[in-house]
């Protein structure tokens, strides 16, 4: 390996570590709700405080229980989103690329409402 190889590798590593530290400074906290995007549009927002099952266009199924959200089922072949660990912290997300569906945790735990807002 040459000198520039090492510089490049070190540069990428530094950028990655700095980006990894950003959430630490912002402070990770439990989120308030899960927003669901489907085909580039907001499908709905569901409170993490309410245990519920949401059917997303018949292609994915979101389950919220005990303050965490996970994709229980998807009709796509790769099943990446189904195998993804459950999410609950502000900023975490699960995506299903083949179906263009994404879940993202937003807001604060204190914002959790008894009634989720469904659209």
């Amino acid at each position: 390996m040459k000198r520039n190889d090492w510089l490049l590798a070190a540069g990428i590593l530094i950028v990655a570590v700095v980006l990894l530290c950003v959430p630490l400074f912002r402070g990770t906290q439990n989120g308030g709700s899960v927003s669901v995007m489907a085909d580039g549009e907001l499908f709905g927002t569901y409170s993490l405080g309410v245990d519920q099952t949401v059917d997303i266009n018949g292609s994915n199924r979101l389950v919220i229980s005990g303050g965490t959200a996970r994709m229980e089922w998807a009709d796509c072949p790769d099943q990446v989103c189904v195998h993804h660990r459950e999410i609950s912290l502000d900023g975490e997300s699960i995506i299903c690329l083949p179906n263009r569906v994404a879940l993202a945790v937003e807001g604060r735990e204190t914002d959790r409402e008894v009634d989720g807002i469904a659209r």
């Binding site: 590798a9 990428i12 590593l13 950028v15 990655a16 570590v17 980006l19 990894l20 959430p23 995007m37 580039g40 549009e41 900023g91 975490e92 997300s93 995506i95 690329l97 263009r100 569906v101 994404a102 993202a104 945790v105």
Partner: peptide, 23 residues
Amino acid sequence: VAMLAVSTWQIGYYLPVLLIAGL
């Protein structure tokens, strides 16, 4: 492309992990 496809900026949180993986 994934961020554009699902219009969810939060998946940008994967960037540092993907940088190290690519490295």
